[in-house]
Amino acid sequence: MTASCSRDHPDRGRRRLLAGAAGLAALGGGGFSIVELARAKDDDEAVSSLVRWGLLIDTARCATGCDACVTACDTEHNLEDLGRPLTDAQWIRKVDLEDTETGHVTSLPMLCQHCEHPPCVDVCPTGASFRREDGIVLVDKHTCIGCRYCVMACPYKARSFIHEALHNQRPWSPRGKGTVESCNLCVHRVDKGRIPACVEACATDGGDAMLFGDISDPDSEIATQLRAGPSTQVRADLGLNTGVRYRNL
């Protein structure tokens, strides 16, 4: 199985080399190594279902009050604070969980879970919500009619409807009034072989709690970590097979 995967992924050798180089550059020790570098993709190259991008988030390393991931996401995609907290878009947010029995507080980032069976994609009447072959769930802003059924369907409150006109948009992150959006796993960076902005910021400015990689590559750091220890899917009862997994939750 490993041998056939190696044939299917000619770039994996290069990726491991890059990952090793990134590991050398890592700032902190322990926990997750800083990053797993993504495979750069040519612009005209189709994405492959042999890859499944995902995240492993160690809540034990995610400090209450730290919002490095949120700030990085807001900057990367220019999610401006328009002063209306009820309607301002949030692609990633920090959620604090207090155990009502013990009082123990856990903090974690919540974002689109990039499900294998995403309810948002099922309910979208036009197919604007879709899942790429490599597992990234996206919204086609040209065919989104703004019905918000996906917002109703998402179990993770991961989607935002854009309630007003936006300015100073990033060219790599088109957004628009009247459409729905959510974390796109920094697809523009991933396709260039980089990691999502939140993961990068967590490693440098946060607790190094987020690991990004190809969970279908058994040799990847994330797959190794997932194999080595327990992890949790939020609302696993729904059977959505999320691409984002949590540890110590």
């Binding site: 994609v121 099922d122 309910v123 979208c124 009447p125 036009t126 197919g127 604007a128 065919t143 989104c144 009619i145 703004g146 019905c147 918000r148 059924y149 409807f161 854009i162 009034k177 009247g178 459409t179 729905v180």
Partner: peptide
């Protein structure tokens, strides 16, 4: 709708898994 002018999109693009 957020984009009512795109009604024609709703009439030409269908996802039949959607009850909508």
């Amino acid at each position: 709708l957020g984009r009512p002018e795109r009604l024609v999109v709703a009439m030409t693009h269908y996802n039949f898994r959607s009850i909508f």
